[in-house]
Amino acid sequence: MRVIRQKPMTLGERLYIFEALRGLWTTLKHAARGLFRYETLPTISYPEGKPEVRNTYRAKHRLMLRPDGTPRCVACGMCAAACPAHCIFIEATASDDPRIEKRVMRFDIDHLTCVFCGLCVEACPVDALRMDTKEMVFEHRNRDDFVAHLYDLTNWDPKDYPDDEQSQVAPGGTKNAEALRVWGMEVK
């Protein structure tokens, strides 16, 4: 056991009023700095200023797209199997493309249940699911809107991911034309 002896307060400290004024001065100092020199503050004034988010941050999900614009997801259900929060709901159907067997018909992620662990991204065998959208704010009017559907998950712009080659393959990306040529190869 260790005994810590408190230093007895001096008379000025015991009088309280001087210490209170000293604290008030600190507050006033920071208030004045916020008014006149806010750029030197170490905090971000949130709605106006946004924090810098790296693409490794586990944000809202997105589904990668093939050159023809269909989701790369093959509806294998590995993400749903890996999900500890059971927030992914997938329904599969047969694909119209003869080269592709199975396609996703329904892909719902309930972001109210999601714990943003990223296990679904790890589980995906075709690298279809990613969490690199940097969208970390979820605000909706009702609970149903927090469920991201297939449309929301595939509705992203390749221009937001300029450094990612895979994203540029999607329609609207810089590598789309080239990828589409390979993709549309003659098949028997």
Partner: peptide, 14 residues
């Protein structure tokens, strides 16, 4: 038989 996007010889999928 067909050749897929990766250039592999595949076939008889359905």
């Amino acid at each position: 038989q067909f050749i897929d996007a990766k250039g592999q010889l595949r076939g008889g999928k359905h």
